[in-house]
Design a protein around this nucleic acid. Sequence first.
DNA 1: CTGGAGGAGACATCCAGAACC
DNA 2: GTGGTTCTGGATGTCTCCTCC
Length: 715
Amino acid sequence: MQDTFCLSVNSKFSFGAAAGKERGLQLLTSLAAEMKSAEEDAYSYTPNVSLSLPLGMGNPCLATQYHTLQSSPVISVSSCHQTGYNLQNDNHAASGYYLPHGLRPNGAPALESPRIEITAYSQYPEDEVEESNTDDHVIKRGVNSIVTLTLPNADGYRDPSCLSPASSISSRSCNSEASSYESSFYNYDNSPQNSPWQSPCVSPRGSSSLLSCPHASGPATSPHHSPSTSPQIGAVAEEGWPAQPRGSRPNSPSCSGGGGGNGGGGGMGKRKYSFNGAPYRQTSCSPNQSPTPSPHGSPRVSVTDENWLANANQYTNSAIVAAINALTTDGVVDMGEGIPIKTRKTMIDHSSSMSLKVEPGGEDLCLDEELCHEDYPSRLALKKENYCGGFLDVPQHPYPWSKPKPYLSPSLPALDWQLPSCSGPYSLQIELQPKSHHRAHYETEGSRGAVKASSGGHPVVQLYGYMESEPLTLQLFIGTADDRLLRPHAFYQVHRITGKTVSTASHEVMQSNTKLLEIPLQPENNMRAIIDCAGILKLRNSDIELRKGETDIGRKNTRVRLVFRVHINQPNGRTVSLQASSNPIECSQRSAQELPLVEKQSVDSYPASGGKMMLLSGLNFLPDSKVMFVEKAQDGHHLWETEAKVDKDSVKSNSLVVEIPRYRNQRISSPVQVNFYVCNGKRKRSQYQRFNYLPPNVNEIIRNDLSNISVHTHA
DNA sequence: CTGGAGGAGACATCCAGAACC
DNA sequence: GTGGTTCTGGATGTCTCCTCC
């Protein structure tokens, strides 16, 4: 697809830098739009806008409206076929990981001053790659480029003191891999301190990455370290998710102990067990242990417009500060900060997989065991059994999983980057979608099993177009399912399922705060993987919300997607990264039982005159279910709301027929997006679904295939 | 407009039965 | 057959949020 956007950047810089800058700009410019959803209630994720272009609703290779609206770094890539129905823009991945030379991935106008000049770490510059052969590619990858980060008014900064590198606001701000919020801004090259290849023992903070890791950090070095009186004693703090026996109550990072991380009342639910099963006693915290809020300073906020807005501001400012911090700090991860001290017996420390900034020993940014031992003896001294023992064998598996080329590389896209599901000959597709409901389990519970497919069995993912003999690694993580850009879900983690019934080998790695499941894609299996090894773990809201820099709210944020990624090394040294995300999965217990869920709609768009019958497929429809069409302004207030006529006779629990109501304005000149939802009563509403009203003169053909319109429009 | 009371809903945990080893 | 573990569905106490007055 030929992108029509213009890249208005003077200097020549890599995609990594470009993406970083763009991501930064996106954050700086589009957070308002992104947090538009903040003005809606928990179910209102969809900004209501009038579309200038019809948009495909589910094409994984199409840029979504959000990409456009948010000045996303996302760009469209060569067209590919849409497979399967995807109501929720499931694959936001309409992006190309590689930015075509000279193109800016969005049309976002540059912001006004102040400016910060960034020396960006060059990743895989498309232009350079194309100009260079494989041999000099490695060298060129290191080329710096200066780009300019333009920031909004400095007045917008919440706390100038946060500019200090030592006061990084985000727990993720040092984790380059998982979040482009940070990684995009990394200044790897300007100083030895900031080199991605630096010794992990060098840090402007004066603490090494090892020291900043919970393993090594003592109470003196980590303000979040558990107090000596903590019930946590003896538990192995691993990757910020220390062991937690079933039924026990881990410490809150705020050291509120049995009071729980949810300030004030001590959080939700019953929290009556200590580490050894005895009731907790509130232990006083050392003053230097936790800068987290006092018990009265619960970070939990209600999902009201006001709070959302406040949250949006925080998000914005946090992102800005994180970006600025990234300019002044290295990429050393301080995993200890702001991360709940808890874990579970099933959680294995994969901290070494966090060590993504491997030595530039050529292209082999290898993390395999040999290299681990040879190159990181000191690290292994601490984590010997961790990553290198992370390949957990599934005995019944007939084939050895010869570890494919390493993928944990600084050059790989962060987890919140939007990637295409297809590129060139390759296409990553979810052949069998997961069920729309899967009850996630808490750390205090036993596993609730693997995610299942809606049609029985388990989800199936296949990579098409790959003809090599070398196996690849399929990565899986839990992503968000709201209408913002797909990103790792803060409140859910993928959980590795083992057992005899599990046929698929897998192992876990941690990338920043996100757990990834790595699954082999074998040519002998046609690069097809049955995902029967992936469950979903729910993290306590109070724990996550207490994390530094965490701005998402856990309450009613219970929908996730399975996000699959694969990275394909090319002969020319490039890596093609593909991503496919599943349909949304509702993970809460109650919602699964009570809330209506719309999985499919037979019509995505129709002329403003309405009148057509639309079939909705889903769950928990009732004879009394109502379907409401709503239109909201960008500031969140209602412009229009009407109840659609439901054919009561046709209502089944999994299907419902509704008549598309007449739009309020019959003279629209361009498609208008509205939302509708199914309502089973007070506060029992489905997620918003999108619907486009078309101008009366749009012909039938176009009307019936908006996706194709999108393709052509973007092409 | 503000604040309190009451109810509804969400969260986190517990319990128990089934299935499996 | 027995005991342990895991999976699964349901129940429930506590807390938060919303609505009403």
